[in-house]
Nucleic acid binder design. Structure first.
Length: 874
DNA sequence: ATCTATGGCAAGCCGA
DNA sequence: TCGGCTTGCCAT
């Protein structure tokens, strides 16, 4: 066909794809599976749509993108038309590689191509050979016989869709259109912010990074049309969770809750249950199905309708079960809209977002949601974030009535949906922001940890700059290991510094900290795997204080620039704006989300280099970062003392300082900026701080009487509830103290408090739940070989009675008199409680605080004569 | 089989 | 009985 004609036909004809077939008209439900063939929309023209997903089509041997068009709220597909092919790199020349028969005869081998890459470890361009392959599995992924097993290959263990995204400079979460069959990025140019004035940066490379982040992070987030779903499976044994691989039992119910107001439960009719009796809980639609085939077909139709499908553990249960169950019932693959991976489950049409995986991620748990939920169960997370827990049912699922079953099943779907809707949809916004920062589509990002996000961001930057991505051992071999000795046995290098506290009560204390300490150090010290311990002899004098390491003066490190620019964008742009009350609520909420997403990534950006599972593992880099941190805080303390400022305490990046007058603190802040290049900020002011001799243990009272408690047993999770409650009352009392003499009053109140608690304990007025210690069991009971801690003893007793305890379970136990010393709450009675042990526990918990404020526990409880260590008290 | 790092405390176990 | 070690939880 002549070229001209072909191109004229491009809009109606595509060489790769079958023409879209018209959707068949609805038919009566004779064969429920008949209408399930999934036909993707493959438009030649498409208005601006969000790039939300990517996959590889093995048949067509091409990457496809899932594009979400926000107006119609539908997913459209675009297949690669650039001829991009899987590849890996070799440092050998083609002439040499051609002699390797198993390589050139490999069925997946396509061709060699000479090319160049910048080798950042050497600091020079090197020749490389690009080895193209027929499909990604030929490069790697099969158990044996892959190209990467035949030769020493570079960049051979990156998922192909990720490779594609990096090479094509695609930006997940951003907007694209399709014009004449081609993918076209939205021409937004650069962000509209004047970089130079906000960030005072002259380096053009650095400026372009700042500009990139602002462009990615200021771009709007669409409303994602989505449905949450959940299934219930009949199980003959009430306590057993059905195996999704076997899928041997019937699916009896599925529920859907969507943000376009679908609330329904699909129910399988069962003998002995009368449909007429079923009364739907208000607003919930009940749909009954005669056969399981019909039910599954209806579920699949629903899944094919939504661009986003939310589950809680759908990867490992719901979707997996449905897939295998459908196969068992004779559905052919093309009639099942689910694609199973090894540890994930995807959908043909939409994006599957498994909230369990995302909320389980420790970075998300700790930094994004500041530890509000402790267990990654739907119940615990909803209770913490939505303040609505699950309804408990006592009847086994198999014996519920239709309406009970529907209500029970639906509430899970609704909770899952709500988890993406509360607080102005923060979760969907957060996911979008993280996807843009990591250059990973939502489905991939949400299933990886923060190290995967950082890896992806760095790999992408390597590709962008034409750097070869070093192999793991190249870095460790050329940079060696660490030069400091860790304080804690078994650790690789020395970490942060903790200042010995000055015990006592200190009034008017300012807490200063370095803004993003480690990321700032990575930025100002030009730290990266390529610059630390560089090849240039003249740079050996550029020492990292407190180590034997040096850092390059000539080349800028990519990590330093990336981490530094993310840090700047957070500190100088999003963080201040996230507190500006004058902004409209939705902008404000987006800034808070971005600020938080950046915090999550930045917090991990130093640690990953010290993790031997990280692909750019570089211990001297992590070590140097921590060493500069110690240097910075030590020199700041020195300077503070020189300025006549008292230093009471400090930990890693924070200093507790006396406040002689504000101007002297300003002097210190300026000194830090000028001498260290570090931004020191006043984080908060305490009316008073109580310090004991213990590090990481203190109590600080804020001007509004709120109290910060750090590290004290009374606040820890495992502490029995009654002690926590009493402890909180103690804190309440101390929060009222304004000046020294007020401690007199406080002491009397505390005395009453403690005595009251004692008498309740002796009279067995507390419930078992109040008395229970709650400890997470870190591994299976059998895994404790060295010692048998108390919570393990309790778990053992439960196991003996057939109550299986798994790693990660919370064990509740009480201390009892008798040989074992402990019993799980379920098995103990109030009369066995060991009052002495509990008395002792109260004492030690309270002493931690009372010590610090100079009150003596013995006196308080009347065990010793009344006398105070306190100035101002009699 | 997933996991950024190190420093520090309390409690209890267990062998010397 | 003492002290080192294990464990869990927390601070940064």
């Amino acid at each position: 066909m002549p070229r001209i004609i072909r191109s004229a036909l491009m809009s109606s004809l595509d060489q790769y794809m079958a023409k879209p077939e018209p959707v068949p008209p609805p038919r009566p439900r004779q064969d429920p599976k008949a209408q399930l063939n999934f036909r993707p929309s493959l438009p030649q023209e498409l208005a601006e749509s969000y790039f939300v997903g990517a996959g590889y089509d093995g048949e067509r041997r091409a990457v496809y993108l899932k594009l979400y068009e926000p107006k119609s709220q539908k997913i459209h597909f675009w297949y690669d038309n650039t001829g991009h092919t899987p590849y890996c790199l070799s440092k050998e020349l083609p002439e040499k590689l051609e002699t390797n028969q198993s390589l050139v005869r490999h069925p997946g081998f396509v061709k060699f191509e000479r090319s160049k890459r910048f080798d950042a470890l050497k600091g020079e361009d090197i020749p490389v050979t690009v080895i193209y392959a027929r499909d990604p599995l030929s490069i790697g992924g099969r158990p044996t016989g892959c190209i990467r097993d035949i030769i020493k290959a570079w960049e051979a263990d990156i998922r192909y869709t990720e490779n594609y995204i990096y090479d094509r400079r695609l930006e997940p979460g951003m907007s694209y259109s399709i014009k004449r069959g081609n993918l076209v990025p939205l021409q937004s140019g650069s962000s509209s912010i004047n970089i130079q004035t906000v960030f005072e940066e002259a380096d053009p490379v650095y400026q372009s990074l700042l500009d990139r982040w602002l462009r990615l992070l200021d771009f709007p987030v669409p409303t994602y049309r989505r449905v949450a779903f959940d299934i219930e499976v009949h199980s003959p044994i009430d306590t057993r969770v059905p195996d999704p691989q076997e899928a041997e039992y019937k699916v009896i119910c599925a529920s859907f809750a969507s943000n376009d107001n679908v609330k329904k439960a699909l129910i399988l009719k069962r003998p002995g249950l009368d449909v007429e009796d079923a009364e739907a809980p208000s607003g919930l639609l009940l749909d009954f199905y005669e056969t399981e085939e019909e039910l599954l077909s209806a579920i699949f139709r629903e899944l094919n309708d939504y661009p986003f499908v939310l589950t809680f553990n759908g990867d490992d249960f719901d979707l997996r079960y449905l897939f295998h169950r459908a196969e068992k019932l004779g559905f052919t693959r093309d009639k099942i809209p689910i694609e199973l991976g090894r540890e994930s489950a995807g959908l043909r049409y939409g994006i599957h977002f498994d909230l369990y995986k995302f909320f389980f991620n420790r970075s998300i748990q700790v930094y994004a949601f500041s530890g509000k939920y402790r267990e990654s169960t739907l119940d615990a997370i909803s209770e913490a974030l939505l303040e609505t827990g699950k309804l408990e049912i006592s009847t086994p699922i198999s014996r519920l009535s239709y309406s009970e079953l529907a209500a029970y099943c639906y509430q899970d779907a609704e909770l899952v949906l709500n988890l993406t809707q509360f607080d102005g949809e923060v979760v969907m916004k957060l996911v979008t922001a993280l996807s843009r920062i990591s250059f990973l589509p939502i489905e991939d990002m949400s299933r990886q940890g923060v190290s995967g996000w950082i890896r992806s961001m760095l790999f992408r930057e390597h590709r962008l700059r034409g750097y070869i991505i070093p192999r793991y051992e190249e870095i460790t071999e050329s940079k060696g290991s660490t030069s400091t000795i860790a304080v804690i046995k078994g650790k690789k290098y020395k970490g942060g510094m903790v200042v010995d506290p000055t015990p006592g009560v200190h009034f008017q204390v300012a807490v200063l900290d370095f803004a993003s300490l480690y990321p700032s150090i990575i930025k100002t010290w030009n730290l990266g795997y390529e610059t630390i311990l560089c090849k240039h002899p003249e740079d050996r004098t550029n020492k990292i204080p407190g180590t034997d390491h040096w850092v390059c003066r000539k080349n800028r490190a990519m990590e330093s620039q990336l981490v530094g620019s993310l840090r700047d964008v957070r500190i100088r742009w999003y963080k201040p704006r996230s507190k500006e009350k004058s902004l409209d609520p939705s902008t404000l909420s987006w800034y808070q989300v971005v600020q938080n997403a950046l915090k999550v990534v930045l917090n991990a950006s130093y640690g990953v280099f010290g993790s031997d599972r990280f692909s750019l593992y570089c211990p001297p880099l992590a070590e140097s970062t921590a060493a500069v941190g110690r240097f910075d805080i030590t020199s700041t303390i020195q300077e503070a003392k020189r300025l006549g400022i008292e230093v009471f305490y400090g930990d890693t990046d924070s200093l507790f300082l006396g406040t002689p007058d504000r101007s002297r603190l300003d002097d210190l802040i300026h000194w830090s900026k000028n001498e260290l290049g570090m931004e020191l900020e006043v984080d908060k002011n305490y009316r008073y701080v109580a310090l004991s001799e213990r590090k990481k243990n203190y109590l600080g009272v804020l001007p509004d009487n709120r109290v910060d408690i750090k590290g004290l047993t009374g606040k820890k999770r495992h502490t029995p509830e009654f002690i926590k409650a009493t402890f909180n009352q103690l804190i309440e009392i101390l929060g009222q103290v304004q000046t020294y003499p007020d401690f007199d009053q406080a002491r009397i109140k505390i005395k009453d408090l403690v005595q009251d608690s004692y008498s309740k304990l002796r009279n067995r007025k507390y419930s078992m739940e109040d008395l229970a210690f709650n400890m997470m069991i870190g591994k299976a009971v059998a895994g404790y070989t060295k010692t048998t801690p108390q919570h393990v003893k309790a778990a053992q007793q439960l196991s003996d009675r057939g109550n299986e305890i798994k790693a990660g379970d919370l064990v509740s136990f009480v201390k009892v008199t008798g040989s074992s010393g402990v019993k799980p709450v379920q098995l103990a009675s109030i009369h066995e409680i060991d009052v002495e042990k509990y008395t002792e526990y109260i004492r030690s918990t309270f002493e931690q605080v009372l010590d610090a404020v100079g009150l003596d526990y013995e006196e308080l409880t009347g065990a010793k004569k009344l006398e105070s260590f306190f100035p101002g008290a009699s």
